[in-house]
Design a binder for these strands. Structure first.
Lengths: 237, 237
DNA sequence: GGCAATTTGTACGTATGTATA
DNA sequence: GTATACATACGTACAAATTGC
């Protein structure tokens, strides 16, 4: 998403309403105010409101019918793989529990994606993984290079190499999940090199077309994170 | 999605334009006609066109800026987990290749979902799986009961029992994938009972909280389908 | 069936931004 | 650079359709 000041009016309203809905300010029972009220609240025209309503409806958050007004859809219908919806969710409830759900999804998706990359990835696509790994290696010891960003690029490039559009489509979701994961699993610095080494092994296995090995390696990588998080959750309770 | 005649104007236009974009009638180079032209073509007001454009933008299919007009986004940005987008894709290219991609995703998601259901599923949620299985059993020999529908319900109820909203959110995607799968993998009738038996074993493993076993059983179930499809693809070539 | 409330659809005017000459 | 033309962005006003009482 671009900077807020670059967004047009209906997009800004969509953002505010979307966050309010996911934050629970409007519920399935209460619904939203009428179009007219929303115009007053935001001091804008009906056209802008209606466009925002249509965008939120397209994301599964609301529905609107004459006489009934604008209704909040059950959370089960929200399109969680929409980048905006994901962002709003994270903003409203950044808990360890959602992180655990993220990791469970990563555990399903990433090992299989890595296995597909080993089986079907084009040489060019695997070059991209290597490139991301190189940057990760540079980042060790050089504070000007972001290990974090290179880590995201590494995992995303594997999704790309899977040669399956449905896996690659999950890049924003996985990036978001990985983002939150990193924030919680790198408390002590200094183990950067070992992180890079683990990723290097995964890259090599993909390059060598060892799909079974890479699948179990990626599984191990994510399960390590799950162990850390489950310990933290217990600690909280 | 409701019946077409129940949709309002902007939703109908969204459908037509969405299908045209995914079908390749408008490309990343050509873009779409101007709002004014679209009004003429469809014989409706600019407001309706604008609302449709906003909905398609919310699904990642297009973007619009002054002077540049309405641009088609790269296919990599389309929100494939949106039910409408998925439907449009299937309508425009119902090939065996997309089915293979579906199955690869199912192989990632469903075994893990079943394992989570075994670990964390509530008793109520597992009851739902049992219910779907019962209907599957009834369907064997009774043509009034749909094995197909019960099969979908079985797999969906496992996603629900995973107790993870991101897995359950994939129910439409998995249902669509399963739908296409069944069409291609049940050529000969008469093996209904063996299909039901396979599902019964999976249910029992979930009920007994055997997460490792259920994971490998679900993996086997889907890999069987993959073998059939890959044979068909080879046959075509 | 009639009435009221609310979204839906239409029409048109002005403003704003942006590519191009 | 500046001006111009063109396309979307935004606003207001009104008529139509739908639904609950």
């Amino acid at each position: 998403m671009a900077r807020i000041e670059n967004l047009n009016l209906s997009q800004r309203v969509t953002n505010e309403l979307g966050q309010a809905i996911i934050g629970g300010h409007y519920t399935s029972e209460s619904g939203l105010p009428t179009e007219a009220k929303l115009c007053e609240e935001y001091g804008i025209s009906r056209t802008a409101i209606r466009e925002a309503v249509k965008m939120l409806a397209a994301k599964g958050l609301i529905s609107s019918r004459p006489r009934q007004g604008i209704l909040v859809e059950p959370a089960a219908n929200w399109n969680l793989y929409d980048t905006s919806v994901l962002k709003w969710m994270l903003a409203s409830s950044p808990s360890l529990l959602i992180l655990k759900e993220f990791l469970q999804m990563r555990l399903a998706v990433e090992p299989e994606a890595a296995a597909l990359a080993a089986k079907f990835g084009s040489d060019d696509a695997i070059d991209r993984i290597e490139l991301a790994l190189d940057v990760m290696q540079q980042a060790v010891g050089d504070p000007d290079v972001s290990l974090h960003d290179a880590d995201l690029a590494f995992h995303t490039s594997i999704l790309y190499a899977s040669n399956n559009r449905f896996f690659y489509q999950l890049r924003d979701f996985i990036s978001t999940a990985l983002n939150v994961t990193i924030q919680h699993t790198t408390p002590a610095k200094g183990n950067d090199q070992s992180v890079v080494d683990d990723h290097a092994k995964i890259y090599q296995a993909i390059r060598n077309r060892q799909s079974d090995q890479v699948k179990s390696m990626m599984t191990d990588l994510i399960e390590e994170a799950i162990v850390v998080i489950e310990a933290k959750i217990k600690q909280q309770a």
